[in-house]
Write a protein that binds this DNA or RNA. Structure first.
Lengths: 225, 225
DNA sequence: AAACCATAACTTGTATACAAGTGAATTTAT
DNA sequence: ATAAATTCACTTGTATACAAGTTATGGTTT
């Protein structure tokens, strides 16, 4: 795929993930083509790619829209991640390399800085979440499971947006950081018996909260019936 | 996506999975377009889709080829499946519904028939493997993890072909069936402690065998260096 | 006024002509 | 004869015109 097309694809992905493009927003081939000075053909390639990864829904001869958040996908992906990560962490536990440990501690330090900083609330949250991803991604990398991290990322549209919409408060961020710390401690000390519950609580804790369903109805995919 | 396109896509997928189209085979847009009486545009859509799921590799301005089997993908996917399935089976263990049990036993009976049948070797192997997939898919379904089964299927090109190339002998099929039986017994009897090893041996046993690397070199992706 | 039908303005789907790389064959120069 | 340069046949990438389905609009009929 040519670079210009990849750039546009990334741009659209970011806009959708950041909710700048809200679920339901119409994505028109001709509009995009004009905006980027391209013909419809390459634009169609891009939209096909976005559709295959769940970013948009294509309704033949009608139009394309930004997909609504699919809570089923969120539930399934968090299940997958909690199962995988608890295993990965156990694999890692006795034999984590020292530079890996440094990398993880470095990320936690940055998360601490982030919490204590005085920037705007949404910016702080975004930055914290980037670091959160970095922490988990590093765990995958250290265990030689980069491949699986990337695989999951390809299906993360719904979970990423779900997470962003949670208006996490300062004490929630502190809790997340502390859980990271505890996970790291378990790895270093080899306390494998604690890991299952830790990871479960960290990733799956407040899934299926009614709060979310009630407050973001217009963003959520209606169950097909 | 229109039906004709979907049909062609499925046809190509089957041909690639069955190794009728060997890794490295050139897939030309114009050739496909002529063969199916279509223009290049819809054919391109199809090829884009196949590329995103790893079936083919697109070399811009050069051509497209059927992808070589990526042993890294095989290793990662079998790891993912062994981790997931042992968890799913544990989830299922105490509370499996009776009709689910019937369905699983029915599949095992068919596998037994298959082994004892006198059909041609490759046909027998193919039929056995379809039943193998049915068994595992049913486990996912019963645990409410259909979504994750489908997700994994989208990345199964390399594992499926790897498995097919293994010239399983009759006693290997018997062993696979017996392992299925043991897994089912564990579920019914609630013997969760046995499950980890059982699933690991069943799915990950002879991964990374040198036999495969030596005998199917021409099908395998060379490590990038 | 309400129901219905035709039409027009949209959308994406497809066909085709042309652009632009790539690599091998051929020609040319040394 | 050999090496370099060029041309040509091939590939996919892009632009554009047209086909075909969908939906809203407005006029007609009842």
């Amino acid at each position: 795929m040519t670079n210009k097309k990849k750039d546009i694809m990334e741009k659209l992905k970011k806009a959708i993930l950041s909710l700048e493009l809200k679920p339901g927003t119409i994505i028109s081939e001709t509009a995009l083509a004009e905006k980027f000075n391209l013909s419809r053909t390459p634009v169609r390639d891009i939209l096909k790619g976005l559709a295959l990864q769940g970013y948009i829904d294509i309704y033949p001869k009608k139009g394309n829209i930004v997909s609504y958040i699919d809570l089923e996908s969120v539930e399934q992906i968090t299940y997958l991640r909690s199962i995988l990560e608890k295993e990965i962490i156990k694999d890692l536990s006795p034999n984590i390399p020292i530079n890996g440990l440094h990398k993880l501690r470095d990320i936690l330090a940055k998360q601490k800085d982030c919490i204590e900083s005085s920037e705007k609330n949404q910016d702080k949250l975004d930055r914290f979440m980037v670091l959160d991803d970095a922490f988990h991604k590093t765990l995958f990398e250290l265990a030689g499971r980069n491949f699986l991290w990337d695989l999951i990322q390809q299906f993360n549209v719904h979970y990423m947006r779900y997470r962003k919409l949670h208006a996490f408060k300062e004490d929630k961020l502190k809790k997340l950081l502390q859980e990271h710390q505890e996970i790291l401690d378990c790895i270093v000390l080899g306390q494998k018996d604690k890991i299952d519950d830790l990871v479960y609580n960290h990733i799956r804790a407040d899934i299926n909260s009614l709060y979310f369903r009630e407050n973001f109805m217009e963003y959520i995919k209606k169950p097909s019936n």
